[in-house]
C-alpha cells in the first residue's frame, strides 16, 4: 500500500468526520429551527465526505478494514484530524467561528485537490467543493453578523477568535507525507492555500469588526496523533455502539 496516501486520506477523512460530529451535536439544540436544520445539513455533508474518503483510505490500505472500521474502531492516537475541529462547541459563536476558520481552509484545498493526479481524490474534491462553498458562505455570513452585531454577539465572536486562533497554524502542517505526494502531483503545497486562507480570514474578520489576535503561541499535534482531551470524549460517544456491540448494524 501507499503509506503516505493512506495517511493523507486519514487527515482529510478525520477532519470531516470530527467536525461533522461536532456539528451533529447541535441537532435539536440550534439557536433557531432554521439554523438547527442548516447545521444538521452541514453535519451530514461532512459525514458523507468522511464516508467517501475513508472508503478510499480503506481501499488504499488494503488490510481488510472498511470505512466503518476506520471511523469507529481506531484508537485516539490513530486519528489524524487537526486540533481545531475537535474543539468543543461551547456556544454558537465558537461553533461558527471554528466552522469559518475550517471552511476557509477547506475551500482552497479542495479547489487544488480537483487537479490531483489521483482520479479518486480529484473526484471527491470536485463533489465536496460544491458543499464546501456553501459552508463557507454560511459560516462567513454568520461571523460577520455576530461580529458586527450587538455588543454581546461581538464579544462572544471575539472570544471565539481569541480562543481558536492558536489552532489555525496546524491547518497548514506539512511533513514528509506531503512532500512525497506533492512530488507525484497527488496533493498541492499548502503554502498558496495558506495565502488564500489568510486573505479570506482577513477580509471576513475585517467586515465583522473582529480583531485577529497577535501571533502568539501556536498549538499543534493532531496531524501526528497527539490530540487534546476533547477527542477522547468524542470517540467515547462516536464509538460506543461498535465497542459495546461489535459488528452491530441498524
Amino acid at each position: 500500500m501507499n503509506k503516505h496516501l493512506f495517511e493523507y486520506l486519514l487527515r482529510l477523512g478525520d477532519d470531516s468526520l470530527i467536525i461533522g460530529h461536532r456539528l451533529s451535536e447541535w441537532c435539536g439544540h440550534g439557536p433557531i429551527l432554521e439554523e438547527d436544520i442548516a447545521m444538521t445539513n452541514m453535519a451530514l455533508d461532512f459525514i458523507g465526505q468522511a464516508t467517501t474518503i475513508l472508503e478510499y483510505a480503506a481501499k488504499v490500505e488494503n488490510a481488510g478494514r472498511d470505512a466503518d472500521a476506520l471511523a469507529f474502531l481506531r484508537y485516539e492516537r490513530e486519528y489524524r484530524n487537526v486540533l481545531l475541529v475537535e474543539q468543543p462547541n461551547e456556544d454558537f459563536a465558537v461553533t461558527m467561528v471554528r466552522q469559518f476558520l475550517f471552511d476557509a481552509f477547506r475551500k482552497p484545498l479542495y479547489e487544488a485537490l480537483q487537479n490531483s493526479s489521483d482520479e479518486q481524490i480529484a473526484a471527491i474534491a470536485e463533489k465536496s467543493l460544491k458543499e464546501t462553498k456553501y459552508h463557507l458562505k454560511h459560516s462567513s455570513e454568520w461571523v460577520i453578523r455576530l461580529g458586527d452585531g450587538t455588543e454581546e454577539s461581538h464579544e462572544k465572536a471575539q472570544y471565539a477568535i481569541d480562543t481558536l486562533w492558536r489552532y489555525t497554524d496546524e491547518l497548514f502542517f506539512e511533513n514528509e507525507v506531503d512532500a512525497a505526494l506533492q512530488s507525484e502531483n497527488i496533493v498541492p503545497s499548502l503554502i498558496p492555500i495558506r495565502e488564500e486562507w489568510q486573505k479570506t480570514v482577513t477580509a471576513v474578520l475585517a467586515e465583522a469588526t473582529l480583531t485577529i489576535p497577535q501571533n502568539g503561541w501556536k498549538q499543534q499535534g493532531g496531524r501526528t496523533g497527539l490530540h487534546s482531551e476533547n477527542l477522547g470524549y468524542i470517540l467515547a460517544e462516536l464509538q460506543y455502539m461498535q465497542r459495546a456491540y461489535p459488528g452491530m448494524k441498524w
Binding site: 429551527l33 432554521e34 439554523e35 436544520i37 442548516a38 456553501y134 458562505k137 455570513e141 453578523r145
Partner: peptide, 11 residues
C-alpha cells in the same frame, strides 16, 4: 433577506 434565502435553501 440573505439569511432568509439560505434558511429556505436548508429548510
Amino acid at each position: 433577506a440573505q439569511m432568509a434565502v439560505e434558511n429556505a435553501r436548508d429548510v
